[in-house]
Nucleic acid binder design. Structure first.
Lengths: 171, 171
DNA sequence: TGAGTAACTTGCATTTTGCAAGTTACTCAT
DNA sequence: ATGAGTAACTTGCAAAATGCAAGTTACTCA
């Protein structure tokens, strides 16, 4: 977990990957979104060894994804509570789940997301907040933001296209 | 990369993580979406050692994310072309980028996504394809799909809620 | 003949991961 | 007051993954 090349550090995806770019972190967050808060809840649900869970929870807490809260004084008992930052990560999990269902569950899904009020299944897509237009490889382009370095600007300017060659199946 | 616990294997997020749940894979895909296709393009852009890049590309190719195509006979030269399966992964990268920009770039973004035709910046959100309603922790619930096992049904039925406690900042 | 280029592989040291077992700090029922 | 139970971890080591440097293959082109 240490790719400190500048081109990675400056990219929002590269930075995100430093916080959650380890598969246990994603799975821990998934469980947290499903309501897990206690050490042993995560441990049992994931089948993860306690030392590893301990390290991952510490890392996620340092990264501001969880707050470690003492919910019982004597004996001391702790719970891991999601922060707003972590809550904002939910769409990533949703997108990942949708992709997994489409491409990695050939015989049908095991879990689907549904509307809480009427139980109708959701079909998640990513759109622009303003006009609800889907964001696809075909209509998007990466441009330098206000904080882009000279190197980043050069890099983005030299992109062949944001619309790369795509092969048919392989699926 | 070997969490083979059944509760992970049966979850679409768990499966997804087996394919792309390694931070280099995400970064390689990011570069591919920006147009990279050749071994040395990835190597230079990422600052990744060639042996590791080789392993990752092989894994992603085996997983059906890339097709390895010979684009020159003599001397033999190869390129890695994204499959439809990989193209469908694009929304996940978009969601990750949006999250990274919001929470990991306090001084402003380095990269933003924009509309290719009018260059207006996109603000990506995840919505339901049918009614364009945002999918949030508050209005979503996880339900068993057609292929859910007995164990998965039990697990989903026993969820406290899909609306866990959330702490304020920590950010 | 000799320099250059693309796409890798090999060898080996370092780092990370993961299982099993042990620890701390209590409560509660006998 | 002893012993069982529970929650939340830590420690010790073995195994696996990662990462750098250097080498290899198979050509082209001046």
């Amino acid at each position: 977990m240490q790719p400190r090349s500048p081109s990675i550090q400056e990219c929002p995806v590269g930075r995100a990957v430093e916080t959650v770019g380890e598969w246990w972190s994603i799975l821990i967050l998934r469980d947290a979104f499903q309501g897990a808060t206690k050490f042993d809840e995560f441990a049992q649900s994931l089948g993860i060894a306690p030392n590893i869970l301990s390290r991952r929870l510490a890392h996620l807490t340092e990264s501001g994804m969880f707050v470690r809260r003492r919910y019982n004084e004597r004996p001391p008992r702790y719970e891991y509570v999601l922060t707003d930052k972590a809550r904002d990560f939910f769409p990533v999990i949703v997108a990942l789940l949708a992709w997994g269902n489409k491409h990695l569950a050939p015989k049908g899904a095991s879990i689907v997301l549904a509307n809480r009020s009427d139980a109708r299944p959701f079909d998640p897509i990513v759109v622009d907040a303003a006009d609800k237009q889907p964001i696809t490889l075909a209509n998007v382009i990466a441009v330098p933001g206000p904080r882009a370095s000279r190197g980043m600007r050069a890099r983005l300017a030299s992109l062949k296209a944001m619309n790369p060659a795509v092969a048919p199946a392989g699926d």
